[in-house]
C-alpha cells in the first residue's frame, strides 16, 4: 500500500549526527509534555515527526532552537547537543543558536514589511552583509533557494503580507534560509496551504536537504512518507518509534505505530 520506491535513493546511508537528544523532558506547568525522548537528527537529512494532535511533536521541535524559552511556564530538561555542544548550556546565547537552527511556522507569518525587508531581516540583525550589494545578493540567493524568486523578483518592495498563502510560506522559508542556518525546523509548514502550494513547498524541502538538516513536524503521513528519510512517531509525549521512513511505514515495530498508520490511512 505504500510506494516506498521513491525513497530508494535516499535510503540507508549513514550520515553525521547533527543534533543529539538524550533523556529529554518538557513540563508545561504541571503537565509532563515530553517524556524521556532520545533522538539523533542527522545532517543533510529530512527527519519527520509524526503523531496525533497533542502528542508533543511540536513542543519537542521547539526545544531544538530553544523557542520554548519564550514561554514562561515551560521547563526543559535533558541533553540536546548540536555538533557536540550542549544547547541548554548557560553560556549559550539562544539568539546565536537560533541563527544556526532556523524555524518555519505552521501559519505563514511574514512581517508587515516589504518582501525584500522580510528576507533581509535575518542577515541584518546578524550582520551577515558587509554592504548593500552583499545584502542584495543574499536576498536574491535566499529567494531562489526558497523557490519564489521568479514570482517576486519584480516586486521586492511590495508588502510580504500581500502574497498568496503558499507564496507567503515559501517567503518565510527563504527568510529562514537567509541567515545561513545549519538546521531548519518546520512546524507543519503546509497545514495552512492548499494542495498545489503544498506540493511546491514539499519539492522545496527536498531541495533544501542538499544543504541543511531539516526537521519537519507534520500531520499528514503521506507528506512524511514523501519528503522524509527518517521518521519519529510520538504518542502522548513519548517517542514510540524512530527509524528509516520506509521501515516505519511498511514494517513498524511498535503496535501503536501500526495502529496509528493503518487507522489513519485506513
Amino acid at each position: 500500500m505504500f510506494d516506498t520506491q521513491t525513497h530508494k535513493d535516499n535510503a540507508v546511508e549513514s550520515k553525521a549526527t547533527k543534533i543529539e537528544c538524550r533523556d529529554c523532558q518538557v513540563y508545561y506547568g504541571d503537565t509532563h509534555a515530553i517524556k524521556d525522548v532520545n533522538v539523533d537528527i542527522e545532517d543533510k537529512t529530512v527527519t519527520a515527526f509524526i503523531g496525533p494532535s497533542g502528542c508533543g511533536k511540536s513542543t519537542f521541535l521547539r526545544c531544538l532552537n530553544r523557542m520554548n524559552d519564550t514561554i514562561d511556564i515551560a521547563r526543559v530538561m535533558g541533553s540536546f547537543k548540536l555538533d557536540g555542544e550542549e544547547i541548554y548550556d548557560k553560556r549559550v546565547d539562544p539568539v546565536q543558536l537560533r541563527a544556526k537552527v532556523g524555524m518555519v511556522f505552521q501559519k505563514p507569518n511574514p512581517f508587515p514589511k516589504s518582501i525584500y525587508d522580510n528576507v533581509a531581516y535575518g542577515p541584518r540583525i546578524h550582520g551577515l552583509a558587509r554592504n548593500k550589494a552583499d545584502l542584495d545578493e543574499i536576498v536574491e540567493k535566499s529567494l531562489r533557494r526558497g523557490a519564489i524568486w521568479d514570482e517576486v523578483k519584480d516586486r521586492l518592495d511590495a508588502p510580504g503580507t500581500g502574497l498568496s498563502g503558499g507564496q507567503q510560506q515559501r517567503l518565510c522559508i527563504a527568510r529562514a534560509v537567509a541567515t545561513e542556518p545549519e538546521v531548519l525546523l518546520m512546524d507543519e509548514p503546509c497545514s495552512a496551504l492548499d494542495p498545489i502550494a503544498t506540493a511546491q513547498v514539499e519539492e522545496l524541502i527536498d531541495e533544501l536537504r542538499q544543504r541543511y538538516s531539516v526537521v519537519i513536524v507534520t500531520h499528514s503521513m503521506q507528506q512524511a512518507a514523501r519528503v522524509s528519510q527518517k521518521t519519529a512517531f510520538f504518542h502522548l509525549g513519548n517517542l514510540v518509534e524512530f527509524g528509516e521512513t520506509g521501515q516505519i511505514f511498511t514494517n513498524p515495530e511498535d503496535p501503536r505505530t501500526e495502529s496509528y498508520i493503518t487507522g489513519r490511512i485506513g
Binding site: M67, R98, G102, F105, N109, I125
Partner: peptide
C-alpha cells in the same frame, strides 16, 4: 499576533 514574535525569535532576533 504572537506569530510575528515567533517568526522573529525563530530567526535569532533578540
Amino acid at each position: 499576533p504572537q506569530s510575528m514574535r515567533d517568526g522573529s525569535y525563530g530567526l535569532g532576533a533578540t
